[in-house]
Amino acid sequence: MSESDSTNSGGCGDCPCKDSGGVNENRRGFLFAAGTTLMTIGGALVAVPIIGAAVAPAAARDPNRWIPLAKSADFRPGTTVLKTFLNPVSAPNDGLTASTACYVRCLEPGKFQVFAVNCAHLGCPVEWFDQSRLFMCPCHGGVYYEDGSRASGPPPRGLFEYMWRISTDGNLEILGGRLPGLQEGT
């Protein structure tokens, strides 16, 4: 109020707008529009790195890479063993979480199944039992047969499987990097 008083020389104190004429009103309107626009643009510019960095992981390209596990000849047919690998996408401060484990089942030389350790129910680590040839989950008791199919318990499906191939130098490689989950096709 005090500001409009001072700008309105000779005007009526009660209603400065009416007396101020079109020029002033246009100027005010322009300033308001300009202010709004500038603030919007500025805010949007600031928001780019803020929101961008926060949601960047959602837009990241496919994190899966071919990861060598071991020589394919090292796996004995009829066995299922735990193997660990380094995540292809990792940061220097990942610590222990830079590694991931998986189960490699060798059916016959050159023929494999590679399972994620994460239970298809809620992602807890399943443990392989060579004696009963079962995977068991310690959380809610999901059980899987040695071919990864669901045996009992709450899991909606069998164990997640990694795609695998044998590289030219004889390594068993798996396509990994993303924490397996129900969104996965396989």
Binding site: A54, V55, P57, A58, A59, A60, P63, N64, N87, V89, S90, A91, P92, N93, D94, G95, T97, A98, T100, N118, H121, L122, G123, G177, R178, L179, G181, L182, Q183
Partner: peptide
């Protein structure tokens, strides 16, 4: 992550935002 992942359509993106990447990490 497994719960978020179940969201149809956007589960993968939601989970990536929650975890800050494709896996649980730093």
């Amino acid at each position: 992550a497994a719960i978020v992942d179940r969201a149809p359509g956007i589960g993968d993106q939601l989970r990536a935002i929650m975890l800050g990447g494709p896996t649980i990490s730093g």
